[in-house]
Design a protein around this nucleic acid. Structure first.
Lengths: 191, 191
DNA sequence: AGGCCGTTGTATCATTTGATACATGATTGC
DNA sequence: GCAATCATGTATCAAATGATACAACGGCCT
């Protein structure tokens, strides 16, 4: 099994590494502390991923793929973009406590232009936006309006997730999402 | 001038450190690289701030104070919360390219529970929310509605700022904020 | 003038860091 | 059964890290 393969044990290590990073942050997690935390050695991490940068790139890649699959799945599962959006929010909120900090930390690295986070940048600005726009096209008049609503809705989701991860309670977050959904529904129906 | 004083040269170093962190990130900025980048030595950073952790705490403290002052200023300058909000957005967007990455990175550290970022956590979840709620009370019926709108509006601002910092263009961000503002205005006026 | 205190430069410490060399199990294909 | 390849453990390297000891400069007050 070559070091570039996607099956175990590399995949296993990657999954555990993501979990560890999500709980402890990238900032002060060295290869050794990470290895110790997930039951391996820094020797193995370097063997399977090549370098720390490549490991982080693999983390970013995996996170992007998983979230991309999730959002596409919800949008395909329901024709109603509001329903799909709420289902996706349910998914996001449920995993927020673990993954939101890592998501924002890696996003910040992408903003700084760190190469290993470049993929995250592309996915965040285009892939998710496209998916949301497609969903909203079903209920809005003009494509522009759908694009506008997609932008706004993504922003709302990320903003509410931000509050939730910073210690906000789930009920408040849900209420905010519900209030926003109701507001958009009303505007779309009145148009 | 004792090491805990808030006037120069500590304040001068702090300002330059914030600027450097904002441009290069906290992740791979050591005391030495930071010192070299702002024209001093790691000896001086340790002298004036005590330790790296205390330096980061000072950065968080300063950022919180500056943003808190800004938001309170805009809310006091205008009785119309929409006008105040848009003025605040103008301020945020103008400084986004430099400060947004640092804001999100430090926020992620706060989510992880890093002690030096604790202050940011408190300010983000309560201070800004209170300010926005106060502003919306002037135009909404119930305090609950104001609180709800404050939550949502903060989320929108942070979400749009997120997109902007990740490479979105300013015009799109402004349009999204405008669309949201219009939507809320309509809802408030119809109630 | 002289002492005092805030400030800075030089040099260095013990750790930790990412990464690798070398050798050794474990598993699979023939 | 054996060889080849993947996987892992041990040991180690050079560099970088946060922090500090020591000494020296400079302005201010008396």
């Amino acid at each position: 099994m070559p070091p570039g393969d996607s099956s175990s044990p590399r995949a296993e290590l990657l999954a555990r590494a993501i979990d560890y990073y999500a709980r402890h942050g990238v900032l002060d997690t060295s290869m050794r502390t990470l290895a110790a935390g997930i039951g391996t050695s820094n020797r193995m991490l370097n063997y399977h991923f090549g370098s720390r940068e490549d490991l982080l790139a693999a983390v970013v890649e995996a996170v992007c793929e998983a979230e991309g699959d999730a959002i596409r799945g919800y949008l395909e599962a329901s024709q109603d973009p509001f329903e799909a959006g709420l289902a996706y929010w349910e998914h996001v909120a449920a995993t927020a406590e673990v993954f939101a900090p890592l998501f924002y930390e890696l996003s910040a690295h992408a903003m700084y232009g760190k190469p290993y986070a470049a993929r995250l940048r592309d996915v965040l600005v285009s892939a998710w936006l496209d998916a949301f726009t497609t969903g909203f096209r079903r209920v809005t008049g003009t494509p522009d309006e759908a694009w506008q609503l997609a932008h706004l809705s993504l922003a709302v989701g990320r903003g509410v997730l931000f509050d939730l991860a910073l210690g906000g309670d789930r009920a408040t977050a849900d209420a905010t999402i519900a209030a926003y959904t109701a507001m958009v529904r009303q505007q779309v129906e009145n148009a």
